[in-house]
Design a protein around this nucleic acid. Structure first.
Lengths: 349, 349
DNA sequence: AGATAATCCGTGAGCGCTCACGGCTCACGG
DNA sequence: CCGTGAGCCGTGAGCGCTCACGGATTATCT
């Protein structure tokens, strides 16, 4: 069953040249005449030769392989991020290991460890659940790291970690602002899980917008909830029955907003006439429920793609020559901040 | 920057033993006293030693790495499959390469090739767009393969390829049957892309159910369409305006069904009273639109998980001893068929 | 013409591990 | 007393490739 694979040696023998010449042919790095190169390539092709990345990696100390660590592929948010990262990585000639952590820090550590053993050239780490110390260690051990939706202080450019963030504060503010602009004076906030960093940031934006508009803001208008439809359903029902003065709701994410939509149906409140609703994320679902949700679009694909690009630069700089424009053009350890964008639909016109 | 990593040699020296002893310690394969093992392990830990999977792979010819090839991670269908496969693989001690093909056969080939170079121990290949010949070659070159939603004849057990299929015919039949059972005599079919194998199978089930119920079946009641919301919207509008006798629609998938829902809104037809609708896949969206969709639930996670389990068996058998129950229990090259399940909701009660 | 440089190719060594050996020590029995 | 075997450990070779050399051949210049 384990038929021997054809090696570079085999090809060399068949072509009557040395291993090195074959190597030069397949890697296309000069020092070889076009004729022999073509000949060797042809023979290699005929023999069905596939150079072993394993052996190459051992010799080169580079694997042309990257790691992508995310909480869960099945979460549409992260699968979009993954897609962006994978695409960009592939374009740069890298393969990427996709690793789920299932939101479990234990497993995240394990995954990172195996990535280390695999000697990947770099890692994109999304929404890490690790604490700062653990994270710092991970960064120190890995040869290149880009963090997504997680910051690590000190983020001085020289600690070799790039960062890609979403501006959740701005998102929270613009969502709330939109509601205020349409005349709402009492807007509630379904805040999502207490542990969520992005939730806290969005809350910050929400409060800022309220303050800026001189709203009669009350902490009782904010209520935490699980991040899914049911969580939103429950929380919205509670909040809306307790706080009859509310005429609008800003929701942690679209799923929560859909839950709120249901609560409105339960309570007989028309959206958007009796209650305006705005969500967050702009997942596909948002446009398809009735009424379609006004929401903050977050560029998920871009999040992943930018992170990967940052990582590729970080790697490229070290192994190749210094880039033309030394650091003015692009600092690979920079922090990139992407802004969400409000998309107005029927739930809050 | 490329600080030397600590090798097995370093650990050996530090512990005053040979490399082999260190190797025995970390791999836990006898021939070593518990005391030295503990000591070596401690020292290795202190030094932050990480055995190189690369070097190990070269020596062992096994990488404990698998490939998972799917058209698109961002597609909720495949991301669930991916999740199932990744989970099961991880449980078996394997890491998995996630590869997108973007529905492009060219890229699928490229991806498979790089998987080959990476010397993965096996591959799960989903919904391959390759033709039979190409596919056969791929299977021949890879050390183990499991196909998902794609069959390859001859599927004799000894060609070393496992298969996991969804019973689309049964799905199409049960969906249609449900409509017929509720008294519909004229049910149309939004058939999805012409190129889709699953679409053809579902059509088969649809026709079978029609025939079994002695329906006045007409080819004009079937119309192909792109697989998304817009495709369904367009096609449903066309079909419903042209064919006023239709009282129910079976849709290729849930997105198409949602499109049909919109068409109904356009045309002022109430769902389910004026028109009943059933979808396929049971994506999250299906339960959240109004009215919620009756649909065929397909066990996506299971599809991936089963495929991975099949693959692990296939690999395990070769390298370890023959399994206890030789082939009665589980034939690793078997074909597993998963059945969809009808879930009844308001769109077709 | 000889000297210099370019072009092309081959030769060891080594990347970090495992595998198949073989050697050593210690206990036990005859 | 030595032989035997179990338990523990070390030694070379090799996995398939690349890297840094160095040699051979041909083109170019003074």
């Amino acid at each position: 069953m384990d038929r021997k694979r054809t090696t570079i040696e085999d090809v060399a023998r068949a072509a009557g040249v040395s291993r090195q010449t074959v190597s030069r042919a397949i890697n296309d790095l000069g020092e070889i005449s076009p004729r022999t190169r073509a000949r060797v390539l042809r023979i290699a092709e005929e023999m069905g030769y596939r150079p072993s990345s394993i052996a190459r990696g051992l010799a080169t100390r580079r694997t042309r392989t990257l790691g992508l660590v995310i909480p869960d592929v099945a979460n549409p948010f992260f699968s979009d991020v993954a897609r962006g990262a994978e695409h960009e990585g592939y374009a740069g000639g890298y393969n990427v290991f996709l690793c789920n952590t299932d939101e479990d820090p234990e497993r995240e550590l394990a995954v990172l460890r195996s990535l280390e053993e695999k000697r990947v050239d770099g890692v994109v780490l999304c929404s890490s659940r690790l604490d700062d110390d653990e994270l710092r260690q991970v960064v120190a051990r890995q040869s290149a790291v880009v963090l997504v939706n997680r910051r690590l202080e000190p983020a001085r450019a020289e600690n070799g970690v790039g960062t890609v963030m979403l501006d959740d504060v701005a998102g929270g503010r613009m969502a709330t602002q939109h509601l205020v602009d349409s005349g709402h004076r009492a807007v509630g906030f379904l805040a999502g899980p207490l542990a969520s960093r992005s939730g806290r940031s969005r809350a910050g934006g929400y409060r800022a917008a309220c303050a800026a508009a001189d709203l009669p803001y009350s902490p009782a208008w904010t209520i935490p909830c699980p991040a899914g439809v049911d969580g939103g359903h429950q929380a919205a029902r509670d909040l809306l029955t307790a706080r009859l003065e509310l005429t609008a709701l800003f929701c942690y994410n679209d799923l929560v907003a859909v839950g709120a939509l249901r609560a409105c149906a339960d309570l007989g409140r028309q959206v958007p006439d009796d209650l305006a609703l705005v969500g967050f994320d702009d997942i596909m679902l948002a446009a398809l429920v009735t009424p379609p949700l006004t929401t903050c679009h977050v560029p998920r694909y871009e999040l992943g793609a930018q992170a990967m690009r940052l990582l590729l630069n970080q790697i490229g700089d070290c192994s190749k020559e210094a880039n033309q424009n030394s650091e003015a053009e692009q600092n690979p350890c920079a922090e990139i901040v992407l802004r969400p964008e409000l998309v107005v639909r029927a739930s809050a016109p």
